[in-house]
């Protein structure tokens, strides 16, 4: 059996006066696309940031490739933030060059091809791009990293349907589902449903179910949306 790429063992996260995650245990061993699904405030973002080594768990352990996760695990993990996390003063070209120079795993060709196919103006500064194009560029940069783990926090939220379609298409075209793990969080299930291999349901900071999506359909005749209703209610 292949060792788990990502392993969470009884992970809890407390902020000053509130609990974000309680006792989460799961292992992601197989490559493919995982959906972290749950309502707003269920701890999805915290979970992803903890998996990325950008937050420390208050209790429990998180391991990536059999090593405790820290910020330096970023050599195996590309994290896509929901926020506008790009340097607004850089042009698209400069941003690509920056990533190319700073990230050893970054494929410049891949990035430039994607940007070309999306018709994004390369000489424009990030801050002058439309919101949709900023989101597109952000996804391009994440997908251009050849790393075993991709974590995307709400990659679709707040974007119009055309942008969402582009993003899903880029994910399908560029994620190597046989080699990479992609974990994406979302509260809009129906749109990503056909793209998921596995689902992780979250509610109030706990993980309720981790299951293969096709298994869900085969064994229970349930769609993810139905399973979600059952699990989260």
């Amino acid at each position: 059996m292949t060792p788990p790429l990502i392993k969470l063992n009884q992970v809890s996260k407390k902020y000053l006066n509130q609990t974000a995650l309680t006792n989460i245990t799961f292992q992601l061993t197989k490559s493919g696309i995982y959906g972290v699904i749950g309502p707003n405030g269920s701890g999805k973002t915290t979970l992803l940031k903890i998996m990325a080594g950008l937050l420390r768990s208050s209790k429990g352990t998180v391991e990536i490739m059999e090593k405790p996760v820290t910020r330096l695990s970023s050599q195996h993990i590309a994290f896509l933030s929901e926020a506008d996390s790009l340097y607004s003063f850089q042009t698209v070209n400069q941003m690509v060059d920056f990533c190319h120079n700073v990230m050893p795993d970054f494929s410049k060709d891949k990035a430039l091809n994607m940007i070309q196919s999306l018709n994004i103006e390369k000489d424009k500064k990030i801050k002058h791009l439309s919101k949709g194009n900023r989101a597109r560029v952000k996804i391009v940069l994440t997908l251009s990293r050849q790393v075993p783990v991709l974590l995307m926090d709400e990659p679709l939220s707040g974007l119009d349907p055309l942008v969402r379609e582009d993003i899903l298409r880029m994910i399908v075209m560029n994620v190597d589902v046989e080699e990479q793990i992609l974990v994406l969080s979302t509260h809009e299930v129906s749109e990503v449903e056909p793209f998921l291999d596995h689902v992780i349901f979250m509610k109030n900071g706990t993980c309720l179910l981790e299951k293969s999506v096709e298994q869900l359909r085969e064994e229970k005749g349930q769609s993810v949306v139905e399973a979600m209703r059952e699990v989260l209610s």
């Binding site: 990325a52 970023s74 994290f79 933030s81 996390s85 607004s88 700073v102 050893p104 795993d105």
Partner: peptide
Amino acid sequence: KEHTSHLWMNLPVPG
């Protein structure tokens, strides 16, 4: 403040 830390902290580069 501008959330670029999300990218900056995730750069695969030693601190």
